[in-house]
C-alpha cells in the first residue's frame, strides 16, 4: 500500500518537473534577445560558433528535439553560462545556495523553538490575558511588512545601539575557507587562530537576519499550534484521560502534544516556499550572499540564463521539500493515509 502511495507521489513529482522544465525551456524563447545566447549564456557568438552551437543545441530541429536536448544538458549539469560572470549557472548557484539554506534553517529552527511553546501556552490559557497577549503579538508579527521590520531592527540594534552588524555573514577581516558552504561548520573546520572570534562574529551577523526571517513563520506556528491544540483538547480521549486522574501536564505531554503537532509538521513544509520568498527580501536588506540576492541581482542585470536557472532550481527545491514533508506527514499520521 505504502509503495503504491509513494509511486503515485513520485509520478506526480515527475509530472511537475516536466512542466517546470518546459516552462524554463520556453523562457529562452520568451526572453528578449538572441535565442542562442539565452540558451548558452555566451555573448558575441562568432558566425562559425553559431553554426556549430545551433547544431549542438538542436536549434535546427523541432521544439521537441530541442527540449529533449535541453533536459539532457540539465541532467548532465551542463547549464547555461551566466551573462555577467561567464560561469556555469548551476555551479554559481550551488555556491550561494548554502547561505540561503543556512539562513532559512536557523529561521525555521527559531520559529519552531519560539512558535510551538507559545502556541501551546496560548491554547492552554485560552481567553486568559496571556493568550490575548500572545495572539496579539502573533497578529502584529503576521501583518508587519518584513522589509520595514528589518530596517527597524537595523535602526535600533545596529545604528543606534551599535550591537550588531548590518550586513554579510561574517566580518570581512576573517578569512574562512569554504568547505561545506555553511558558515558555522566551516568555521569549526577551519584551522585559523581566530576561529573562536570568527564563530562569535558569525553568530552576531546571523542574529538579525534570522530574527527577521523567523518572524512570519513564528506567527504562523503560534496560530497553527494554538488552533490544533485547542482541537485536540476538545477531544474525548483528553477528557477521558483527565477523568482518569492524570494531571494537566501529563495529559498535555502524553496525549495532547503528539496529536497536536502532527498538522504542524505539515506546516513546516508548506512554510518553506514562503520562507524562501521572504529570504530573498531579507538577503537583499542584509546583503546576505545567498541565492535570493543573487537572483534579484540577475534580474537587475537582465541576466537571462541566470534567471532561467534560478527559477528552475528554486522551484524544484520548493516542490521537492513540499513533497517530502507531505510523504513524511503521511507516514507519521495514520489518519492522513488515504491509500
Amino acid at each position: 500500500m505504502i509503495l503504491h502511495y509513494l509511486f503515485r507521489r513520485l509520478f506526480l513529482l515527475a509530472f511537475v518537473f516536466v512542466a517546470l522544465t518546459i516552462f524554463a525551456f520556453s523562457l529562452s524563447y520568451l526572453f528578449p534577445g538572441d535565442v542562442l545566447s539565452n540558451f548558452t549564456g555566451l555573448r558575441n557568438i562568432s558566425p562559425a560558433d553559431e553554426v556549430m552551437l545551433t547544431r549542438q543545441l538542436g536549434l535546427d530541429q523541432n521544439y521537441l528535439q530541442q527540449y529533449l536536448l535541453f533536459v539532457q544538458r540539465l541532467l548532465q549539469g551542463d547549464w547555461a553560462l551566466s551573462f555577467s560572470s561567464q560561469q556555469n549557472v548551476l555551479t554559481e548557484m550551488l555556491q550561494v545556495m548554502p547561505a540561503t539554506l543556512e539562513l532559512a534553517a536557523y529561521a525555521l529552527f527559531l520559529s519552531l523553538l519560539v512558535g510551538i511553546p507559545l502556541g501551546i501556552v496560548a491554547a492552554v490559557r485560552k481567553d486568559k490575558w496571556l493568550d490575548k497577549v500572545i495572539s496579539t503579538l502573533a497578529l502584529i508579527g503576521f501583518s508587519v511588512p518584513i522589509f520595514w521590520w528589518a530596517l527597524l531592527l537595523i535602526m535600533v540594534f545596529s545604528l543606534s545601539l551599535g550591537w550588531l552588524p548590518t550586513s554579510g555573514r561574517l566580518g570581512v577581516l576573517y578569512e574562512i575557507p569554504t568547505v561545506t558552504g555553511f558558515m558555522l561548520p566551516d568555521i569549526l573546520l577551519s584551522e585559523q587562530s581566530y576561529r573562536q572570534q570568527a564563530f562569535i562574529d558569525a553568530i552576531r551577523h546571523m542574529l538579525l537576519p534570522s530574527v527577521v526571517l523567523a518572524t512570519y513563520p513564528t506567527t504562523v506556528m503560534i496560530r497553527f499550534t494554538r488552533d490544533s491544540m485547542l482541537d485536540v483538547l476538545e477531544q474525548n480521549y483528553i477528557k477521558t484521560a483527565r477523568a482518569k486522574g492524570l494531571t494537566r501536564l501529563q495529559v498535555l505531554y502524553t496525549h495532547g502534544l503528539r496529536n497536536a503537532l502532527l498538522p504542524v509538521t505539515r506546516q513546516v513544509g508548506l512554510q518553506f516556499s514562503t520562507l524562501i520568498t521572504l529570504a530573498m527580501i531579507t538577503e537583499v536588506i542584509f546583503s546576505w550572499p545567498g541565492i535570493g540576492r543573487w537572483l534579484i541581482d540577475s534580474i537587475y542585470q537582465r541576466n537571462f540564463p541566470a534567471i532561467q536557472g534560478g527559477v528552475l532550481l528554486v522551484s524544484s527545491l520548493v516542490i521537492l521539500v513540499n513533497m517530502l514533508t507531505e510523504i513524511m506527514h503521511t507516514l507519521f499520521n495514520p489518519l492522513a493515509r488515504k491509500f
Binding site: I154, S158, L159, G162, L164, P165, T166, S167, G168, G171, V172, L173, S287
Partner: peptide, 22 residues
C-alpha cells in the same frame, strides 16, 4: 596585516556600515 576592499554599491548601506564600524 590585511586590507579588505568591501564592495557595497548602496551608499546608504555604506554609511550604515561606517556607523557600525564594519
Amino acid at each position: 596585516q590585511q586590507l579588505v576592499i568591501d564592495i557595497v554599491p548602496d551608499s546608504t548601506k555604506r554609511v550604515a556600515k561606517l556607523l557600525t564600524h564594519e
